[in-house]
Design a protein around this nucleic acid. Structure first.
Lengths: 225, 225
DNA sequence: TGTACATCAGTGAACGCGCGTTCACTGATGTAC
DNA sequence: TGTACATCAGTGAACGCGCGTTCACTGATGTAC
């Protein structure tokens, strides 16, 4: 980060620099073997330091992982908010879909750290939930814009939309959102995660399919039905 | 397994029994902490054996994991084939969807062993691909039955269906399948995996949603569009 | 500007742990005559 | 039915490894007078 607090002492600046480098190496390690293989000693060695040196910067392994997860959530929320190109609803949703895939492909293991199998023996920190609802809020904005009116209905998913009218606490910041919009947000999330996570896990390799086209097809399906 | 080969010697029968018990304990361990935490020594201790004793039954840790993965694939393929309740296409697809969720909920970590983040440093064995296409074949059968004719089209997913007509090697056993049927199979897979994996990873907890309803809504969306 | 002191980054040794895996060996089970 | 031998399950010690984490300590950097 080039921007530095003006009241920061040189020592503190150095601290932040080293912390950042530790995290950077941690991400490299995660990119290679996943989060469960993350090792403080290995990071230290990679930085030319002794193992115990890192305990000046992080209380323990869990604190480091917690920070990495929070940074990942933060990064995704920022990417989402940055794609706030307003415009017609459907186009905006497609924009979010594109941003999501780009963010995931940039670092697949980071994506799985957020949405994948939970790291064994690790409990997610509290404050990621705040960022989660930030992400959901950006998504809901686009979904509200993409569902202009209680459109013509095929009646199939009725049961679920009734359920949504009764269970909308997770969309507390959007009292204006129709059940259709809520359902759209959930479909966006689950469908794109489905296509994306199977692609990242390599389940399409050998099938000769273009994952990008499959992904786009699923994304467009959201505003077509 | 109660069924035993009649030509089997008692010693061989005992071997198979112990192998089965090792796998059983392995699954219990995986159910607790995921596959990357699987430990031969821990299994041995749990069975009242010494660590090295297991090397009579499995060449090494990788061979054990390979067998577990293959058994998981086998189990899913059998569950799918068992749901071959013929009948109208859409109902058959819904049946498969139900079976998939039940199978996943019975052992979430087993599901992730098949469709989740790949185990770090582990390469999937060759012969699972055969079972994979078995599963895909059952699914394609239902999809062909569910897409009677090149129905009225909204034209949105056109690009992808053109792509599918050119890239259908993965459906080699189903030359009769229309691009719509192929796309339906892929949507079945990705959408249901999306809803299911987010549920299993606990991403809906705290939202007050009923994952079963969400899942059913996604399943019915397949044959509604 | 120089000296005295406090702060703090980093080291090296050590602890205890669990892992996968090998090896020589014991003892029980099955087989052949 | 009994004896001689081969097969094989399981043991215990050992090797080498890497992990997270603690602790007492050195040496450099910053601060106060």
């Amino acid at each position: 980060m080039p921007t530095t607090d003006s009241t920061t002492t040189p020592r503190e600046r150095y601290r932040q620099q080293v912390r950042a480098e530790v995290k950077e190496k941690a991400w490299q390690q995660i990119a290679g073997s996943g989060a469960s293989a993350l090792s403080l000693n290995a990071i230290a060695k990679q930085m030319g330091l002794s193992g115990p040196a890192l305990y000046r910067y992080f209380a323990n392994r869990d604190e480091l992982i917690t920070e990495l997860i929070r940074d990942a959530y933060r990064s995704l929320a920022d990417a989402f908010a940055g794609a706030a190109d307003p415009g017609p609803g459907p186009a905006r949703l497609l924009g979010l879909a594109r941003v999501l895939r780009a963010w995931a492909l940039a670092d697949p293991h980071r994506y799985f750290l957020v949405y994948g199998t939970p790291v064994p023996g690790y409990e997610a920190p509290q404050d990621t939930t705040a960022i989660t609802s930030e992400i959901m809020s950006t998504l809901l904005d686009a979904c509200v814009a993409a569902t202009p009116r209680p459109a013509a209905h095929d009646g199939r998913a009725r049961a679920f939309e009734e359920h949504l009218t009764d269970h909308r606490d997770w969309a507390a910041g959007h009292p204006d959102a129709s059940p259709e919009a809520l359902g759209l947000a959930l479909s966006f999330w689950t469908r794109l995660h489905g296509a994306l996570s199977l692609e990242l896990a390599g389940h399409f390799t050998g099938m000769g399919l273009d994952p990008a086209l499959l992904y786009t097809a699923e994304a467009t399906s959201l505003t077509a039905g």
